[in-house]
């Protein structure tokens, strides 16, 4: 595909939120060769970026369209909204999809009840709460298989 480089990773990625998740993703994607731009309100947040990170940093509120524009979001193959606030992630994701036509948009959404609403908007919502619940249940299931209750 023309959008992706040889390894199948997106070429140009905008990451909104440089918390633990955002900074981790920024480092990992840098490592596989993607160009990464990270946006965060707070300059100190960039301290979390690892040595692998080789992209750009933008200080600003991604809810403002100007900030997304400064990050050249219209050229992005992919936008990841990873802040701690569901509403920020959902708004940024929708603006990226609708206004900037970013082909792939992922948003972290803590509240799993909202997922169906945003599926309609062509945004992939990833719920850490749900992932964690799945992981817990999977681990419980495995234990049960290994050592069945007497």
């Amino acid at each position: 595909m023309s959008l992706k480089n040889h390894d199948g990773w997106p070429q140009y990625v905008v990451i909104v939120g440089c918390g633990r998740l955002g900074s981790l993703l920024a480092g990992l994607l840098s490592e596989v060769g993607s160009s990464v731009v990270v946006i965060d309100l707070n300059e100190a947040a960039f301290d979390l970026l690892t040595a692998e990170f080789s992209g750009f940093r933008i200080v600003g509120d991604a809810v403002e369209i100007e900030v997304l524009r400064a990050a050249k979001t219209h050229k992005a193959d992919c936008l990841l909204a990873t802040t701690e606030e569901d509403n920020v992630n959902l708004m940024v994701a929708q603006v990226a999809r609708k206004v900037f036509n970013v082909p792939k948009v992922l948003a972290r959404v803590f509240d799993p009840r909202r997922e169906p609403v945003y599926r309609e908007f062509d945004i992939e919502a990833i719920s850490p709460t749900k992932l964690m619940a799945d992981a817990f249940l999977a681990s419980l299931g495995k234990k049960r298989e290994a050592e069945p209750c007497a």
């Binding site: 403002e64 100007e66 509403n87």
Partner: peptide, 28 residues
């Protein structure tokens, strides 16, 4: 972002016919 979420949830989940939002950033 909160105003947008309120309006979208009201409209999408509860079929509220009209939603009105204050926009703080005029560009929004």
């Amino acid at each position: 972002q909160d105003n947008l979420a309120v309006c979208q949830i009201a409209h999408r989940m509860f079929r509220v016919p009209r939603t009105v939002a204050l926009v703080n950033d005029p560009q929004n």
